[in-house]
Structures are given as structure tokens and as C-alpha cells.
């Protein structure tokens, strides 16, 4: 499955995140490889979203380091981490509600013309620069060769919306979309940052069985279409068991089990963590 075991895409190197006395994530050690689809599950308050927040740079971990594509991203700021190729969605939808659907996607493309920081970081690690072209700020305000760029960006955004099936709604306000479409737009917006790793925080929350069925197909589709690696937090077991190749189970901030859906389903610790000892997984 993984042609290069030695270099993971994401390496959480014994990460601990404590808030005062509360340890939200405890010694989290895991490697995620290219094109994997990994599920992160656990009871409420297990620390799953905190893991996402640590990866994306919102929190600075108390202990441990995070490596992405061989680069130590622990000290980086959230936007720099996004530039390097990690994108996410949010548990509670956080769209730019007053902007149109197309604009929401365009915002996520902004870093293609404003990324001086990340060039420096990539250079330091001997990697290639992302996008060339400087002084885009003045060029965009004074409209010096900017309209062409704007058109390119719009075309690209529109194409992305077509792929995810939101192009009909491109000029609608994001807040006017129905719930399911808003979830989809969040994913589209994340995709517009051109990620290598996509973090989805409860994408199926609030969906009916039919909708979550569609969502599963959609997630598989985008993984193949955009050549992604996906880490997914989800409470809907059907979704998790249905699409994830590997599942990490957390409880009280620690990893209590890891394996493929079959193994997780029968793991005693997992069953205890979820519903006490009487619980049995019924499909």
C-alpha cells in the first residue's frame, strides 16, 4: 500500500498538549503515509479536535514535534502550514458567510500570489519554490497585469466548484446555502488551498443516512481526484468503518487503539471506552 514506508507525509512525534493542568492530548505518536485515508475516533472530549488544532498550528504543543513532508512544522504559523499543504474543515462550519460561494474558494487561493514566507521555508529545506511572481500587492491594486491573473484564479475556482458540484451556486452567498452544501463548500474551500493532507472534522455531522452515504462517495472521489491523504474525525461509525483504511482511537487524550476497521470493531479497549463493557458493535 505504501511504497515508501521510511518517509511519512505526517509524523506526530510524541505530541502532548496541555492547557494548565488539563492534558488534552497525551504523547500522541503516529505516522500517516501518502494517500492513506485515516479515521480518528473517540468519545466526546477525547482530544480529537485538539489534535487537528495542534497540527494546523493553532496551538503550540507543550511537548513533541510535528513533521510534514520532512519539514518540522511545529514552530510555524497556521497560514504557513496551510501553504505547505495541510488544509482542514471545521466541526462547526466556519465559512466566510457574507462572501459568495466562488469568493470563499478564491480566498483560499489567495496564497498563490502571497506566499513570500513559505518560499523562504521551502528554500531552507532545499525544496522548490511554489509560485513565482512578486509585488502582487501593488500589481493587484494598480491593475498591472493583474486582471489576467484574476481571471485565471476565477477559472480555477469555478472548475473546482464544478468538480464538487457547486458551480450552479457560485454566486450565492455562502450563508444562504443549505446545510449539506455548506459542508461541501467547506471541503471545496479547503481543496482550493491545494493541500497534500486534508483534515476533515466531523464532515457527516448533522447528516441523514442518505446524505452521509453520498459524503462517503464524495470523500473517496476527492482523494483520487486530488491525490490526497485524508485524516478524518467522525462520530458516524458507518462512515468511519466504510471508508477508512486505518483507524486511530483516542480516549482521554491518548491513543488507545489503532488498526483496520475489522480490528477496531473487535478491540476490547475501544468497546469499553465507548459504551462500557456491555456494548457490542452491531452493523
Amino acid at each position: 500500500m505504501n511504497d515508501n514506508k521510511s518517509s511519512p507525509l505526517l509524523h506526530m512525534d510524541h505530541v502532548t498538549m496541555a492547557f494548565g493542568g488539563l492534558i488534552a492530548v497525551n504523547d500522541f505518536e503516529n505516522k500517516i503515509y501518502k494517500n492513506e485515508l485515516v479515521g480518528l475516533i473517540g468519545p466526546n472530549g477525547a482530544g480529537k479536535t485538539t489534535v487537528f488544532n495542534v497540527i494546523t498550528g493553532i496551538y503550540y504543543p507543550t511537548k513533541g514535534k510535528i513533521f510534514f513532508d520532512g519539514i518540522d512544522i511545529t514552530p510555524l504559523k497556521p497560514y504557513q502550514i496551510t501553504h505547505l499543504g495541510i488544509a482542514r474543515t471545521f466541526q462547526n462550519i466556519r465559512l466566510f458567510s457574507d462572501l459568495s460561494v466562488l469568493e470563499n474558494v478564491l480566498v483560499a487561493q489567495h496564497h498563490t500570489i502571497d506566499n513570500a514566507d513559505v518560499d523562504r521555508i521551502l528554500k531552507k529545506h532545499g525544496k522548490e519554490k511554489k509560485v513565482k511572481g512578486k509585488a502582487w500587492f501593488w500589481r493587484s491594486v494598480l491593475k498591472l497585469g493583474y486582471m489576467k491573473k484574476e481571471k485565471e484564479m476565477k477559472n480555477e475556482a469555478y472548475k473546482l466548484l464544478e468538480k464538487v458540484g457547486l458551480s450552479d451556486l457560485a454566486w450565492e452567498k455562502a450563508s444562504s446555502l443549505p446545510y449539506g452544501q455548506q459542508r461541501k463548500l467547506e471541503i471545496a474551500r479547503a481543496l482550493a488551498t491545494k493541500p497534500k493532507l486534508l483534515l476533515l472534522d466531523e464532515p457527516a455531522a448533522g447528516m441523514n443516512p442518505k446524505e452521509s452515504e453520498e459524503l462517503m462517495k464524495f470523500i473517496k472521489f476527492i482523494r483520487d481526484e486530488f491525490d490526497l491523504t485524508i485524516l478524518l474525525i467522525e462520530h458516524d461509525m458507518k462512515v468511519v468503518m466504510g471508508i477508512c483504511e486505518r483507524i486511530i482511537v483516542m480516549d482521554y487524550g491518548s491513543i488507545i487503539a489503532e488498526g483496520n476497521p475489522m480490528e477496531i470493531r473487535t478491540n476490547k479497549k475501544v468497546i469499553e471506552a465507548y459504551l462500557g463493557k456491555e456494548w457490542e458493535y452491531a452493523e
Binding site: T56, I58, K77, P78, Y79, T82, H83, A87, R88, F90, R94, L95, F96, S97, D98, L99, E103, V107, A108, H110, H111, D114, N115, R189, A190, A192, T193
Partner: peptide, 15 residues
């Protein structure tokens, strides 16, 4: 505008 709507989301979208 994105920053006005949601600073954290804007930062996480690479701004």
C-alpha cells in the same frame, strides 16, 4: 473581507 468574516478560518485558509 475574509478576515472580517472569520479571522481564524482566514488564517487557516493560508492568509
Amino acid at each position: 473581507l475574509a478576515i472580517r468574516e472569520d479571522r481564524i478560518a482566514a488564517e487557516l485558509m493560508g492568509i
